[in-house]
Nucleic acid binder design. Sequence first.
DNA 1: GGGCTGATTTGATCTGAATCAATGCCTTTT
DNA 2: AAAAGGCATTGATTCAGATCAAATCAGCCC
Lengths: 251, 251
Amino acid sequence: MSDQTTCRRDARPRRLILAGAHRQPGYCLTCGIRAQSVCSVIDDDDIARLAETAVETLVLPGRSFIEEGAAATDFYNITSGSVKLFKALPDGRRQITGFATTGHFLGLAVSDQYAFGAEAIDTVRLCRFSRPRMRQLMDDFPRLERRLLAEASNELVAAQNQMLLLGRKTARERVASFLLERMREAQDPAEDVPLPMTRSDMADYLGLTIETVSRTLSWMRTERLVAIGKGHTVRIIAMERLQTLAAGDAA
Amino acid sequence: MSDQTTCRRDARPRRLILAGAHRQPGYCLTCGIRAQSVCSVIDDDDIARLAETAVETLVLPGRSFIEEGAAATDFYNITSGSVKLFKALPDGRRQITGFATTGHFLGLAVSDQYAFGAEAIDTVRLCRFSRPRMRQLMDDFPRLERRLLAEASNELVAAQNQMLLLGRKTARERVASFLLERMREAQDPAEDVPLPMTRSDMADYLGLTIETVSRTLSWMRTERLVAIGKGHTVRIIAMERLQTLAAGDAA
DNA sequence: GGGCTGATTTGATCTGAATCAATGCCTTTT
DNA sequence: AAAAGGCATTGATTCAGATCAAATCAGCCC
């Protein structure tokens, strides 16, 4: 743990640059997740402008690509994989402020510097947009700025819900809320809820400890609220009871 | 307490409408806080457009003007007074997500409905802008939308800091952080820190109880970190020690 | 298959803050 | 001026979750 912490603090963010900027519009034209991301507001006619701005990046599991406090030079759009966003205290205490996945746009919560760090949970692919270029795109395409404002609004709503959870919910209510949120985020809600992150990450997101997260999941299994599957998945069995618990409505 | 809670839940938001929309640009031209608010991006030449959109509103202490879950019809700009923004659970547990004061623009954290409630701490004056009209202004004045995106970004940064506080800080660290934040918000940082809200509100903001907030302030007084003044003010005595405590850096 | 490492679960004990209770203080009302 | 009401402080006790410790599990590598 101490070795990992040291390594994480001193290591420069490492990632593979695939090929630098792709100057051909085909890059963005063939993007599989364009429809669900902020890029969808740019028409096919103008797609070259977008493509010349985007730099595709691969980040290996456990590697970070945004360092808290660093100068805010870029925006990022996640094209595949899972990312944890976090803030840390000097003694290593950590609060994960969000989990981001395919289609999430990162970089709105900044002033001059990044207010958070970002680290890949599994293998992650990103498009990186430099802030000056993005600024120019926003000026040229007002729809883009409008879309970013909508993204920011959604993030603010989510942040307020997280504050309520952290400030006032019990451990059980927090874990229940977390499972339901993960389910909503999944591409196919009918399947098992994918939980690619560790118990430690969940704890850092919920303001709890690893042991309490584990204990609570075990309690839910015993109460037949969920079934804990293999390969980092959870199946929700008693959906309404879980929702009642998450809403703070249990008797 | 229960009587107040009941009243607060059932009462329709009450406020005084001063005179309806002011159709004369003089209204916004003479606004004392325009320079520090989002309205500053609108030039004097175009001020009539702004004035015809703004509805001045007076809200008495204790009254709410935004109801969580209601249809999001308006934005608000605070022109004087203090406001608490909050989310509530069914059993009355409450999390204050922010304190807003002069110059704060409210209404960005919404989807179709308001995700939070807002209530006046003291006498509050507001300008209200209907969302359709504001939408039109944003289209006509791209600077405005850009400014709102910057406001949203700042709010996201603040939200992340609040998540860190709620998720990982001790009670002492929380109260210290709160005092420093209030000091930064005050118009004149050289004077005593104004705390117009009750201990209960502080507790709901910090994820603590009334007693813990009071105990912690008393401890700080005993340790000569602060002096607790009359009329809802606190004077910070040992600034650096308080900053160290708030940063989670105390030994 | 065996060994190793990191993650997860489980058990026992501890603790920071919550809860409950009472008192004090300040402001408003009569 | 006295009473009432609301807020703040203080003391005693309790408790939800943290901390500490150990056992088990899962995945990877040889």
